[in-house]
Computed example of a mutant assay.
Amino acid sequence: NYVKKVPLYKQTDFHTVNSKESWRLFREELRVSKENAKIEDFQLILDKNNRIYSVRFDLVDKDDDTFKVFHYSNCFSCELKAENQVHISKNTVSEWIQFDKLVDANHFFEALDILNQKDFFINSTFDYKLIVSSGWTEESLVKGYYYLLKDRNLQKVDNAVPQTVSSGFNLQVIGSERAENFSTDIDTTKFVFIDSNLE
Rank of each mutant, 00 (worst) to 15 (best):
I52Y: 00
A105S: 15
F70N: 04
E35D: 14
L59N: 01
E199M: 05
S176K: 06
V60W: 04
V103W: 00
N170D: 13
V69G: 03
V93P: 06
K4W: 04
K150C: 01
C78T: 08
S140I: 04
H107N: 07
N116Y: 07
Q43V: 09
K10H: 08
V3Q: 14
S89R: 13
L46A: 01
R27A: 08
A82W: 08
I122P: 05
F99H: 10
R31N: 13
F191N: 14
S19P: 15
E40W: 06
V69I: 12
V32I: 15
F121I: 06
L46C: 01
I52G: 00
V161W: 03
N91A: 12
N106D: 09
T125S: 13
V69R: 12
P162Y: 13
F42H: 08
R51M: 01
K38R: 15
K143H: 06
D104L: 00
S33A: 08
D195I: 11
Y128A: 04
F109P: 07
V6T: 15
I186L: 02
V165Q: 13
F26D: 06
S89W: 01
H107K: 10
Y145V: 10
K48G: 00
V3F: 06
L171T: 04
K34F: 04
S73E: 15
A82F: 14
Q172V: 11
S183C: 03
F42D: 03
N170I: 02
F76N: 11
F26P: 07
L149I: 06
L154W: 14
V86G: 01
T16C: 02
P162N: 08
A179T: 10
F99C: 02
K156M: 06
I97F: 10
F14G: 01
F121R: 10
V165K: 09
L149M: 05
V142T: 07
W136C: 04
E79D: 15
V32F: 10
W23L: 08
S94T: 09
V6D: 09
F169Q: 03
L8Q: 05
F126R: 00
H71K: 11
F191L: 14
N36Y: 08
L149F: 06
V165P: 00
Q163I: 03
D127G: 09
Q172K: 11
V165N: 15
S73Y: 05
G144D: 02
H107I: 05
I122C: 05
K81E: 09
F42Y: 15
D185N: 09
N74C: 07
Y72G: 08
K10I: 15
F182N: 02
Y2L: 10
D187S: 08
L141S: 10
G175Q: 06
N106E: 03
T66H: 12
F26C: 03
N74W: 01
F191C: 04
F26M: 05
T125K: 12
S77F: 13
D185R: 12
I186E: 06
K10L: 07
T137G: 08
N74E: 13
W96I: 01
Y72S: 12
N1L: 07
T164P: 00
A179D: 04
F120T: 13
S183G: 02
N123F: 02
V165F: 10
F108P: 12
A105N: 04
